[in-house]
Structures are given as C-alpha cells and as structure tokens.
Amino acid sequence: MIVIGYMLVCLVFGTTFLAIKVGMDAAAPPFFSAGMRFFIAGLILFLWSVWRGKASFKLLMHKEMLINGALLTFGTFSTLYWAEQYVASGVAAILSATGPLMILLLQVIVMKQRSSRRAVLGCLIGFTGVILLVLPSASIVASMLAIIGCIAILVGELAYSSGALYAQNVIQRHRDSSPIALNAVQMIYGGLLLFVLSGLTEHVHVDVVFTREAVGSLLYLTIVGSMVGHSLFYWLVAKTNPVFPSTWLYVSPPIALLVGVLFYQEPFTWVMGLGVVTIITGTVIVNWESLRQLDRRGKKRREISLLADRLSNS
C-alpha cells in the first residue's frame, strides 16, 4: 500500500504545477483561488471523517492545527500561486524540488539530527536531475517579478519543509485521529488564512473566477490535487517519515514532461532523458533504507502467507 500510495502522490502532484498555471493564465486571483481549493477540500474531507467517526469537531480547537495549516498550506501555496503568475510551471517544479533537501538541512542544522551521507547525496543527485530535465525547455524571463517569484517559491518550500517535520509531531499527538482528518483540518485553516490574505490584497471579480479555465483548474486542484493527493501525502508521512513522501518533488517533472510531449508536442532531448535517469537514481538513493525495510516486510508477509498455506493444507 505504501508503494501504491507513493506512486499516486507522484502522479497527482506531477500535474498540479500545470493546473495552477492554467488558472493563473486565466487571470484568476491567486490567493482566492488557493483559498477556495484548500478550504472546500478540507471541509468536505473533515465532515466525511466526522460522519465516519474518524474525527470530532474538537480537533478544530487545537492550535497545532492552525500552525500546521499556516506552514503546509498557507506558506507553501500562497507563494507558489502568486509566483506562477510570472514563473513558468517547469521552473516552479525545479524550485519546488528543493523541499526534501531543505527537510534534511532543517533536521541537521535546526533539530541537530544526524543524517546519512547517502540521503544527502541522493537529494543533491535528484535536484541535479530536475535541473537537467526541465531547464532545456523552461523559458526564464529575466525580469524583477520573475526573480521575486523564484525567491517566493523557495520561501514557500522552507515553510513546506518545516510543516512536513511538524506534521510528524502532530500525528504523534493525535494518534486517535485519522491522518486524513488531520490533513483536512490543516487545509481548512490554511484556506481561511489564504482568504484573509486575499481580502487584504485582491479584488475578486466573479466573471474572472468563473471562466472555463479557472473553474476547470479549481475543480482539478480541489478534488484530485488536495482531496486525493494531500490526503495520501499526509498518510505517507504517518506511515514512513517526512523525507520519503517529499521525494515526489523529484518524480513530478518527468510526469510533466511526458504530458507535454504526448499532448502538447513539447521537445524531448537527450539532456532531458539524462535528467529522468538522474532523478530516479537520486530518489532510490534517498529512499534506500526505506525501500529495504519495505522489501523485508514484503518478504516476511510472503513467508507468513506460505506458512499459513502449508498449515491449512496439512
């Protein structure tokens, strides 16, 4: 289940950068669009969790839910949505790939945790692969807004990395609550913060918000990107560690590249192919220990299953 969940996260998140770009190119207000996406998705998932008895309304009263929403949703996506008005989606994917590296740096520098050289090397290799993959086709406009946008995405990734680490503690404190419910509450708070920012900085016009492109982008990002993708990500953090799920950021550019080649006739060069191989290599190196543990668990389950079959046949 962990491997399947990871593959789905990579597939879903690999398409969200382009979906955000479609909405921003349709002149949808970035903070309001992001707020709608996360508040609606979070509210639906939370009410569903309450209905199934997996959460209670008391969960909304915990301050760590607000902190988590401020980091994982508000901090990450306020900057990303705003930046994609001026930065190409491919460039945004490159910069977002700094997430796992920032997590490792925070663990080593701030939290004083030891990290293996293999994990650090894997992150560096993976990030190099992202550059090789996307850079040949990314059009970077040397304008001040583009530069500020790139910086904004990096700031957002720092918030994302802090949130991923903090989420691990939140999950431990609320073991009785479903990871999906925890994710839903932080999306609700993140969406509310985005609405506040939108009210202070944006003028929302109905005719712009409800264009075909803007509505299509919002529906896809709300249902597939947030309700499915972020719930799976939160579940993976609970089942593994903060670094393993975050390596989807290395796999998303190949997915975006494939979509571009198949549906938009975008070019594919040998440099991009080298980038794909490098990304996969870096991802495997980062997750080497986790993959070995999964392999051992799989072998153990198969041994138990074989033993049970022998006992039942004897």
Rank of each mutant, 00 (worst) to 15 (best):
M61Q: 08
P253W: 06
S33F: 06
P253M: 10
V12P: 05
W48C: 06
L192Q: 02
V155S: 08
G260K: 09
Y160E: 11
A34M: 01
Y81G: 08
H230P: 00
G216Q: 09
L219H: 10
M65I: 08
P100F: 12
G298N: 11
S89W: 12
G75C: 09
D176C: 06
Y234E: 01
S143I: 01
A93N: 10
F195E: 10
L11V: 03
N313F: 05
S139H: 15
H174C: 08
I285P: 02
L306G: 03
T15Q: 04
T98D: 06
I4L: 15
L249N: 15
P253N: 08
M102K: 02
S231Q: 02
V87F: 12
I148R: 09
S143V: 00
E84R: 02
F77H: 11
P136S: 00
A146Y: 07
L236A: 11
Q172T: 13
Q186L: 07
P242M: 01
Y250V: 04
R212C: 00
K239A: 09
I4D: 03
L104S: 07
V204R: 07
T128L: 13
P30I: 07
L133A: 09
F127W: 10
P136E: 13
I285M: 15
Y264G: 04
P29Q: 01
M102E: 15
V185S: 09
I109M: 06
P267G: 09
V261F: 06
S231W: 04
F127T: 08
I103V: 14
A152M: 11
T76C: 10
W51Q: 11
S137I: 13
W288H: 12
T240A: 09
I255Y: 05
S162K: 03
A181H: 12
D309P: 00
A83S: 15
N183F: 00
D295T: 08
I153Y: 01
A55R: 09
S115D: 07
G190S: 02
I255A: 10
L221V: 11
V237M: 14
S56C: 00
A308F: 04
N183D: 05
A34K: 00
Y81L: 03
W51G: 02
I188F: 02
A88G: 15
M61V: 05
Y160I: 03
G216M: 11
Y166S: 13
V110K: 13
L106T: 04
C10P: 13
S89L: 11
P29I: 11
A308E: 13
L200T: 08
M36D: 01
F195R: 04
V261D: 05
F77A: 00
L11Y: 04
Q172Y: 12
I280K: 10
I280L: 14
R292S: 08
M7A: 15
E213L: 14
F244K: 02
H203R: 10
L132V: 04
E64R: 09
I2V: 13
G199W: 11
P136Y: 05
L158S: 12
G273E: 03
A119Y: 06
T76E: 01
R175N: 13
M102L: 15
V141T: 15
G5Q: 07
I153H: 10
V134G: 02
S177Q: 14
V215A: 09
